[in-house]
Amino acid sequence: MRLRHVLTALGVAAFGALASGPVSAQRAPSGTPPTIAIIIDDMGFDATQGERLARMEQPLTLAFLPFRPHTVALARLAHEHGKEIMLHAPMANTHHYELGAGGLTPDMDQHTMTTVLRRSLQAIPYVAGVNNHMGSLLTQQLKPMDWVMAELEKYPLYFVDSRTIATTVAGKVASAYRVPSIDRDVFLDNEQTDAAIDVQFKRLIQLARKNGSAVAIGHPHKATVDYLTKHLPELDEQGIAVATVSGLWALRNDNRSMFVDGSKQPVQPAYARKQ
């Protein structure tokens, strides 16, 4: 049986009953193949590489920046091709890089922060989860993370802590609010060369073999897309499965579903403009 069919049989789509117990166990159940999830951040700017990612056969998870030129169109295309869609929420960083539209900053009060976050969620078609874009400053601060998770808890959404700084509290606060959460294990493409990406990709596979599963974050750079186009189809023969984030969460949590049907209010779409 091919690995993608194994994952289907195990219930990769992870939505349906409110999770109990730990929200981010490290190991998949025994007997399941080593499984990776690959998140591609910064989606919404590059239409060419974005379309290549959206049309890939493997179940990638694509994280879209809000209100960017190609966000809505690419998110719709990706959904049509079986990809999982996330909001890539811009958060303040220690280098003070500009965040752009939808940015969350420490000077915001709770009302402002939750309003900006809610509007960003509403701007992403088929949004299933959230991770932080940058955020090395904001994700260290308890109060802003408390406000973020209090808003996310209302919806059937998970959270991925991108772990852009070791002292992040984002994942812990998500757990406190019972927002299903997972941490990033590997960055694929801090260096955009085939050799450097290969080192990180092999590290991802090694972690998955050791722990049962692992999560990587990459970006829509041509070098990254070229590498994934070449090497993802080889994983089946290597005994490595690829899952969406929700699918990997299910594998780590006894194949339970994340949410009871109807227990959370859906995100109401409100796209700012036609894209």
Rank of each mutant, 00 (worst) to 15 (best):
I217R: 01
L104P: 08
M86S: 04
G247L: 08
T32E: 07
L142R: 15
Y155C: 06
E57D: 15
Y271G: 02
A73Y: 00
F159I: 05
G135L: 02
P34D: 00
I39L: 13
S246P: 01
E80H: 10
S120R: 06
E237Q: 15
G239Y: 03
Y126T: 12
K83I: 10
L74I: 08
L7N: 03
L228Y: 06
E191K: 11
R252W: 01
D109K: 07
V12T: 13
P90G: 07
F159E: 03
K172N: 14
V6N: 07
K83D: 14
L137M: 13
N255V: 05
H95V: 10
Q200I: 00
Y158H: 09
Q110H: 15
E84N: 10
P69S: 06
L53K: 07
S263C: 09
I240E: 11
F64A: 14
G103Y: 12
F187S: 06
Q58W: 10
A196S: 13
F67L: 09
L7K: 02
A214Y: 00
A17M: 07
G11F: 07
L117K: 04
A63W: 03
V23N: 09
A166D: 11
A123Y: 09
P156H: 05
V173T: 14
T48E: 13
P180R: 01
P69Q: 08
L62V: 06
E234G: 03
I124K: 00
L62F: 04
Q192K: 03
K143A: 13
K143R: 13
A223D: 04
T48G: 13
S181E: 10
A13I: 13
P22Q: 12
G218L: 04
L10Q: 05
D107K: 15
D107P: 01
H95T: 12
L104Q: 11
G31Q: 05
Q140R: 15
A25M: 15
M134P: 01
D226V: 13
V130K: 03
K202M: 09
G262K: 08
T193Y: 08
T94L: 15
I197H: 00
D161L: 04
L104F: 07
L152A: 02
T229W: 11
T115L: 12
V225L: 00
I240Q: 12
A216T: 02
G100C: 09
S246A: 08
S24N: 14
P220L: 07
K83F: 05
A176L: 12
N190M: 00
Q58S: 14
H231A: 08
A37M: 02
